[in-house]
Each structure stands twice: as structure tokens, then as C-alpha cells.
Design a protein around this nucleic acid. Structure first.
Lengths: 192, 192
DNA sequence: CGAGGTTGTTATCGAATGATTACTAGGTCT
DNA sequence: AGACCTAGTAATCATTCGATAACAACCTCG
């Protein structure tokens, strides 16, 4: 397989694993195994685990931006709904949302933090400059997005139906897409 | 010093360090050093690093709940503002907010995930059952809170004034408390 | 005093894990 | 054919780090 294809394949696998187990909780060996390749090879292709993670979150933020740009055209009235649906639509790529959620608590790491801030900033700039949100509208839009990230990060989906809070929160966050979301998210107890 | 005092002292130190460097990024040795004690001693007092972290986040969520309960009495009109101010007021305890932010991406860990979900759930139950929020109001309230967590987790405060997005987001999240927040939050490049 | 409990330390172990090295198989170009 | 590049692996190293063991100082109580 060509190196570029292999890189993409590893990035996809790494998104799933990093998304499920966070940066520190993930070993390069798990990523390698998920990609069907040897551990030294992922290290050689990406240099270090940190560089791999950086590429993974850069790619993730780029995908979010792309999904937003695709969903933007249309009436202004339901602009927010369209972009929101685009965001949850990213759940089809395994690990994408948990990964982004996890990246928002990495501000303390020098390199990774900078990349995560850049990624978030690119989304905010899109909302303000391209989508035409006011600062207040952007705040509300991103606030809901971050609540969704929290729901995903906490794996509240596993308690849906059996625990009152989780059920309420999920119903509030995904008024008509709860089942879709639940199907796509990793459960708390999901083994990797 | 008595063991209970020492425990509390270590919990305070651990809150700061875990908050600044996340769970995986923190070593028990750093916690010990921050508390002015030897590394094996913190391990012996708490059993494992995981148990230490669990106590730290349980304590953190308990403090949030306590702050909310204290701020609750008063007119219903500005209930949200009071609780919001109580939340940002927790910044005086170093690491508190970044710690909570970080805990929301630990749902994938078996034990820790359960504790984090319980903590979040206790806050949501407070909002619904004690503060009398509707589900919609609770969603909005928590959404803003999670955006604040994100801002804190990403360490956007360090870019305030020099980067457009960070400036806008912070102004939106803390309309009249930006300076207070900036003074209390760890910068991205803060060494530990 | 001396036994025992509490608070703490130094030294060290063992496992996990990111990274490196050295090697191999297969294709390609001259 | 044979030199060379690309894709890949097995084996291994070196470090980090959580945990453990063994020991020391101090207090207290009979």
C-alpha cells in the first residue's frame, strides 16, 4: 500500500482510538493494531505519538470546518439547525466528536494546546466571518456544541433510558436524533 | 501534621496539578512535590493515582454543588446569573475549573468515568430539582458552563487581547469578569 | 522506660511504552 | 542482473512512573 494511503488509514484508526481512550490513555501500539500495522511503523510514519495526535486533531477540525461549509448554503432562519446537524453528522466517523471533545482539555500541552486552540479558533472564525453569526449567536451555538462534546466525553449515552439525567440531557441535546447518536457513540464500557 | 489535614492538603495540590496538566499528563511525583511531600506517601495515602484522581474530582463536584446551593436563594429573575457567578467564583481555588473540564472527557475510563458522570448528574439534578430550571433552561445553563470549561481547558485566556477569537469568546463568556478570570487561570505556557 | 501507633522518607522494583536499530521483501529503473 | 527505493517487521532499548518494601523519627500511654 502507498504511504499516503497508509497514513490516512492510520489517521482514521487513530481518530477512533484517541477518541475512545484520550491522548494519554492511548498507546501507539493500540493505534497500530487498530490500523493493522506494526507499532514501530506508525511511529516512523509520524515521528512521535505527539505528532500523530496533532495530525489527527488537525484533520478532525478540518473535517468539521468542511462539514460546516457544506451545510452553510440555505435560508438564514435555520442556519443553526443545519450546522448543528452537520456537527452531529460527523459521528459517522468513529471517534471524531469524542476526539474533539478531548482536545479541548489539552490546552496545557505546549504544541498540542496550540493546535487545539487554532482548530477551535478556525471554527469560531467560520461562524463569525463566513456564517455571519453575531458574537452572541456564536456563543450560543458553540455553547450547545460544547455541551454535546461533554455528553460525548462523559459517555452519557450509555445511561440513556436507565438514568434520569442522562436521558434528559440527551433528549435536550438531540431532540430528534437520540437514537442515531446512541448508535454511533462508544459506550462507557466499550472495549477496544 | 494529622493525616486528615495532609490528605486535604494533597487534594488541594492535586486539584491544581491535575487541572493544569490533565489526568494522564500528571505524575504522582508532581502532586507530591506540589504538596511538599514524598511521592510514595501520596500513593500510600490514596492507594493509587486513579483513586487519588477520583477523590479529587468528587471533591471538586461537591464544591461546585455547595457553591450553587449557597448562591441559589434570591429572586428567580437572575437565578442564572447568580449560579453562573458562583461557578466562575470557583476559579479562586486553583485548578478547580480546568479539572472539571478535564473530567468531562474521561467517560471512557471505567471507574473515573462513572464518578465523572455521577458528578455531572448531581449538578444537573440540582438545577432541575432544587433550582427549578426547566429542561430547556438547564440545557442553556449547562451549555454556557461547558463553553466556559472549553475556554478554560483550551487555555484561551493566554491569547486574550492578542488573538481575535480568544478575545471575542472570553468577552462573551465573562461579560464583566474577564480580568478576574484571566488573573486566576493558568496560562498555556505556565510551567509547573 | 518501652511498646505500639502515626507520620513520613529513601531506595528500589517492575511493568508499560515510546522510540530506535537492524533487517527483509518486493518493486522499479538502467 | 543488480543497485536502489519504498513499505514494512521483529527485536530491543531506555525511560518514565506508579507502586512497594524497609526503615526512621516522633508521640503517647501504661
Amino acid at each position: 500500500m502507498s504511504a499516503v494511503d497508509r497514513r490516512e488509514q492510520i489517521l482514521v484508526a487513530a481518530t477512533a482510538v484517541f477518541g475512545a481512550k484520550t491522548y494519554v490513555g492511548t498507546t501507539t501500539d493500540e493505534v497500530a493494531r487498530a490500523a493493522g500495522v506494526s507499532q514501530p511503523y506508525v511511529v516512523r510514519l509520524f515521528g512521535t505519538k505527539e505528532k500523530l495526535y496533532i495530525e489527527v486533531i488537525q484533520r478532525a477540525y478540518a473535517h468539521v470546518l468542511e462539514a460546516f461549509r457544506t451545510a452553510l448554503p440555505g435560508p438564514v432562519e435555520n442556519r443553526g439547525e443545519r450546522l448543528g446537524a452537520a456537527y452531529t453528522g460527523l459521528l459517522v466517523e468513529r471517534g471524531m466528536l469524542p476526539l474533539i471533545a478531548g482536545s479541548t482539555s489539552m490546552g496545557g500541552e505546549a504544541e498540542i494546546g496550540r493546535v487545539a486552540r487554532d482548530g477551535f479558533s478556525s471554527l469560531w472564525r467560520f461562524a463569525r466571518d463566513e456564517a455571519g453569526f453575531t458574537a452572541d449567536e456564536a456563543r450560543t451555538f458553540f455553547a450547545i456544541g460544547m455541551l454535546i462534546n461533554t455528553v460525548v466525553g462523559l459517555r452519557l449515552t450509555g445511561d440513556y433510558g436507565s438514568e434520569v439525567t442522562a436521558t434528559e440531557v440527551l433528549d435536550e441535546c438531540f431532540p430528534d436524533a437520540v437514537e442515531k447518536v446512541r448508535a454511533l457513540l462508544p459506550r462507557a464500557d466499550e472495549p477496544w
